[in-house]
Simulated scan of single mutants.
Amino acid sequence: MLPTSSPPPGHSSKQRRHSRYSLLWLYFRRLFKPTQMDFQYTLWTMLQLCISPKTAYRHTSYHKQTKNHWARDDPAFVVICCTLVALAALAYCLAFSHSVGRSLLTIVSAVAVDFLAVGAAIATAGWALSNRFLRRQNQHSHAVEQSVEWMYAFDVHCNAFFPMFLLLYVLQLVLCPVLLMHTFVATVLSAVLYAVGSAFYVYITFLGYSALPFLERTEVFLYPIAGIVVALPLALLLGINPTKLVLKWYFDYQP
């Protein structure tokens, strides 16, 4: 039976704002209480993002059903990522930096800028794009209007970042003796590594937004792969080794 009255104007928007504030409060409260973070589930999610990303996002729908929001209310994923990025940056500094001050600046920059600030900018762009252009129009006047939460958009960035981190931070460091050689093979390996890492980021971002049932045309998030496909042969033709460029940017490294 249909309701005979509708909620007062602005009622649903007030509810959404209250829900967002409650989620933020819970999120930051847990940030300072490590015992309330579920690190075991977070590590399981990270594993799934590497071997079966769709499985990881399938659990997102379960989260919505049980807690009535799409975003994580547990900061464990961000905490682990920040720690891993800091440790990876420290490893690069030990290998390529000759200054303690420069090393500390690099570590802070890797976490605060490369992961958090750039990630927040990408999340904001995805959040604005999806809410402005990709939401399905409600077919029923009594249907509940849904929108992408900014915190969920940032979760999508974190999810996409982790496999890319393993490729472009960890694996690259292991392969540096080969990637820094003055050979065409080293250039090919470096360019392919960055292409695969970037494509993985784009694909998992696409999965994150396509997991939301109220969005449509989410294939737009796959469009950057076209740029990657074009950039890869150009890099090879021009002899551009991304690993050398990155190390030169951060450490003025001259192989």
Score class of each variant (00 low, 15 high):
residue 220 V to L: 15
residue 40 Q to G: 05
residue 62 Y to K: 10
residue 239 G to F: 08
residue 40 Q to A: 09
residue 34 P to C: 11
residue 145 E to M: 04
residue 75 P to G: 10
residue 52 S to Q: 12
residue 189 L to S: 10
residue 250 Y to L: 07
residue 71 A to K: 09
residue 150 W to N: 05
residue 99 S to I: 04
residue 210 S to R: 15
residue 202 V to N: 01
residue 19 S to L: 13
residue 238 L to D: 01
residue 45 T to W: 06
residue 150 W to E: 05
residue 128 A to K: 00
residue 216 E to R: 12
residue 75 P to C: 08
residue 198 S to D: 11
residue 88 A to D: 08
residue 63 H to M: 06
residue 13 S to Q: 14
residue 42 T to Q: 08
residue 29 R to A: 03
residue 253 Y to E: 03
residue 216 E to Y: 08
residue 154 F to T: 02
residue 62 Y to P: 01
residue 254 Q to H: 04
residue 166 L to T: 01
residue 135 R to M: 06
residue 58 R to I: 05
residue 149 E to H: 09
residue 90 L to S: 13
residue 199 A to N: 00
residue 242 P to S: 10
residue 161 F to N: 02
residue 95 A to Y: 01
residue 137 Q to I: 02
residue 95 A to M: 04
residue 192 V to D: 08
residue 207 L to V: 02
residue 17 R to F: 12
residue 179 L to C: 09
residue 233 P to A: 14
residue 167 L to D: 02
residue 190 S to H: 10
residue 232 L to Q: 09
residue 215 L to D: 08
residue 10 G to L: 10
residue 143 A to F: 06
residue 197 G to K: 03
residue 187 T to Y: 12
residue 14 K to A: 15
residue 150 W to L: 14
residue 137 Q to P: 00
residue 189 L to Q: 11
residue 55 T to D: 11
residue 180 L to N: 10
residue 252 D to N: 11
residue 234 L to T: 08
residue 184 F to E: 15
residue 228 I to C: 07
residue 62 Y to I: 04
residue 141 S to Q: 11
residue 182 H to D: 15
residue 174 V to H: 06
residue 240 I to V: 14
residue 137 Q to R: 07
residue 85 V to N: 10
residue 82 C to F: 05
residue 102 R to V: 10
residue 198 S to I: 05
residue 185 V to A: 15
residue 110 A to K: 11
residue 212 L to E: 06
residue 151 M to L: 13
residue 106 T to E: 15
residue 164 M to P: 00
residue 220 V to N: 15
residue 229 V to S: 05
residue 121 A to E: 12
residue 141 S to H: 12
residue 15 Q to R: 13
residue 220 V to Q: 14
residue 251 F to E: 02
residue 129 L to D: 00
residue 3 P to A: 06
residue 220 V to I: 15
residue 44 W to M: 08
residue 118 V to L: 12
residue 83 T to R: 02
residue 21 Y to C: 13
residue 104 L to D: 06
residue 142 H to Q: 13
residue 249 W to H: 05
residue 107 I to W: 15
residue 115 F to M: 05
residue 8 P to E: 14
residue 22 S to N: 14
residue 251 F to G: 01
residue 211 A to N: 14
residue 118 V to N: 09
residue 10 G to C: 09
residue 40 Q to L: 11
residue 196 V to T: 06
residue 39 F to I: 05
residue 240 I to Y: 07
residue 177 P to S: 09
residue 205 T to R: 05
residue 134 L to H: 02
residue 22 S to H: 13
residue 243 T to Q: 02
residue 222 L to C: 08
residue 152 Y to S: 06
residue 31 L to A: 13
residue 93 C to H: 07
residue 40 Q to C: 03
residue 116 L to A: 04
residue 126 G to Y: 03
residue 68 N to E: 09
residue 52 S to T: 07
residue 245 L to P: 00
residue 11 H to S: 11
